[in-house]
Amino acid sequence: MCGEAYVLPLSFMALWVRPDEFHQTFNFRYLDSEWKPEILFRSINESFEAFDSVGAPSTWVLSNHDIIRHASRMGGVTGRPTASDGIGPNDPQPDRELGLRRARGATLFTLGLPGSTYLYQGEELGLPEHTTLEGKYRQDPTFARTGGARVGRDGCRVPLPWEAGVGAANGFNESGLAWLPQPELYAEYSRDQQEGVTGSTLELYKQALALRKTLRIGEGSFAWLPQFTNERALGYRNGDVLVIHNFGTDALPLPRGKILVASQSGLVEGQLLDPDQTVWIAI
């Protein structure tokens, strides 16, 4: 049983997951880190300190049904994710390429952490937010209650694309109809366009999740890597795996070791890690 409770500080939230309480609770502190190294560093430390104190696993999450999808959020949307009003057609539009690159790196960094990771439907496809949804389709009460001043959460609740071009909903169902229409660009994110395609976001998720299970990452350990803990990078060790993310603007030299998985397509040992990318290295 998992509590969807926005309770801070985490030392207070940890009281909800004592042995006779909930099994887990969502970690909104981590979700609200805005993907900045200094905030992430503090939130990860706070998470382990709080949940370890009651013998509960920490949880990690980047997207859910109430906030802008992180593939769009990381493409230029600023501010605390849980305080967002959503993105509408008249708002500045996120950079899709930048957002997806950062989202892939963020996911791989997160999946390397010990504890439990929660994935939101569609992020395995790299789905962006539906940011151009017309008002006539919106169903979130937030939109109606504020007269459209806040567009709300419908943009992250659009049905998933399965087969490109199969009906208006890209194979989501046989009728082609859905409670929220997909944007045209969702066709290129469809499962059938990514399955088995080297370097696709779907295959990255499948590879990382398989490794996480095989290497028992969720049951592992955690220690920061001092040489990769600064404004340019964050890195940690989980068992015999190094996880390193490049927050800088220049490519990052990496320690020796076998590359297990990387958000940077085609990365091999001896190469540099590009900005916004994450790698797992076996030592």
Results as ranks from 00 to 15, higher is better:
L119A: 09
V54P: 00
F48H: 09
G148I: 09
F228V: 03
G171W: 05
M13N: 11
F48Q: 01
F28M: 01
A106N: 03
A178M: 10
G112E: 03
G218E: 08
S33K: 05
F222W: 10
P159K: 08
P92M: 09
I39Q: 09
E219F: 02
P255W: 14
G147W: 06
G147M: 10
F12K: 12
V158Y: 10
E4S: 11
P9W: 02
N246H: 05
G235D: 00
P89M: 02
G105R: 02
P92D: 06
I281L: 08
T78V: 13
N173G: 10
L40V: 10
K36F: 10
G171L: 07
G235P: 07
R157C: 06
L108Q: 00
I217C: 05
F228Q: 01
A14K: 00
V241W: 00
R104V: 06
F41E: 14
G176V: 07
A262F: 10
F247D: 01
W35P: 00
E38N: 11
L15M: 15
S11G: 04
I283T: 13
M74Q: 13
G155T: 08
A178K: 06
I217E: 09
V268A: 11
E219A: 13
D154R: 05
K36I: 11
I44T: 02
T117D: 02
R232D: 11
S58T: 13
R138F: 08
T107N: 11
R216A: 13
A71F: 08
L15V: 06
N230M: 02
G135L: 11
R101T: 11
I68H: 06
D274Q: 15
G220P: 04
G199N: 10
A56M: 12
I67P: 02
Q24Y: 14
V243Y: 08
M74S: 09
A50M: 03
E163W: 13
P275H: 07
A210H: 14
N246K: 04
I87Q: 01
L225K: 03
W16D: 12
R237S: 11
T249E: 15
L215V: 01
